[in-house]
């Protein structure tokens, strides 16, 4: 699925330059599950942006299904994001003025799905995360856990190849955290997609079969056969 070679991302703010990623080589199997951890500022989010085609590396290649996302023209990169990649963000990133259902629908807009078909699929996706009763609520009327469920439904409604989650439980309290983790794991098994998640939660990291640790832009992989 993914083949990263020598990926470097350099940010420059004024005179100071930071290598958020410093020559990362990484392979992720189709249908695999990778947990990313590391200290704050280590480059976790930056790596996820490279994987999701949200940004391009300064150097190196990010091969996704045989195409280099680093070289892809913007229009095609947008298409890859629309069709193949689902995102879940730490702070949910829902559109505050749209209802749960409409928020989920936004993921189907670039696929050209119209009207009733779009609404139906959105409702279905919300049903699968246990929010079938909350279609017409705006984010402000939902709890944090419910909002993140809407975001998960939005990420999965397009039936992507990859689900990328950046600290999906980071803004939730403990009880909700487990709930969301269970949901994500269940969905991963059910859909057979590639699941890459950044987390600070060491208990989750410990249970992960494959763990990537990023420090100062460098990745170390730990395989955990026991998990």
């Amino acid at each position: 699925m993914y083949q990263l070679r020598g990926v470097t991302k350099r940010y420059s703010r004024g005179k100071k330059t930071v290598d958020a990623l410093a020559g990362v080589d990484l392979t992720i199997e189709d249908g695999g599950r990778l947990v990313i951890q590391g200290p704050t500022g280590g480059g976790k989010s930056t790596l996820l942006q490279m994987l999701g085609g949200l940004d391009r590396p300064t150097r190196g290649s990010v091969e996704f299904d045989g195409v280099d996302l680093a070289q892809l023209p913007e229009a095609r990169l947008t298409k890859v994001r629309a069709e193949s990649i689902g995102f879940v963000f730490q702070s949910f990133n829902l559109i505050p003025t749209l209802t749960a259902q409409e928020n989920v629908e936004t993921a189907l807009v670039p696929l050209g799905l119209k009207g009733a078909a779009r609404r139906e699929r959105a409702a279905e996706a919300l049903g699968s995360v246990g929010l079938g009763e909350r279609l017409g609520h705006v984010p402000g009327e939902l709890s944090g856990g419910q909002q993140q469920r809407v975001a998960i439904a939005r990420a999965l409604v397009k039936r992507p190849k990859v689900l990328l989650a950046d600290e999906p439980t980071g803004n939730l309290d403990e009880s909700m955290r487990d709930e969301i983790m269970e949901l994500l794991e269940g969905l991963w098994k059910e859909h057979g997609l590639t699941f890459i998640m950044v987390t600070h939660d060491s208990s989750i990291a410990r249970r992960a079969p494959r763990l990537a640790t990023i420090r100062k832009g460098r990745v170390t992989i730990t395989e955990n056969a026991a998990a």
Binding site: G52, L54, E74, A75, T78, K79, R81, A82, E83, F87, F89, S91, N93, I95, P96, T106, A107, V109, P110, L111, R154
Partner: peptide
Amino acid sequence: VREFGTLKALGWKSGR
């Protein structure tokens, strides 16, 4: 910014 960035991340074209 985050709202529109999210839409772009979801695959919305810049023009949209």
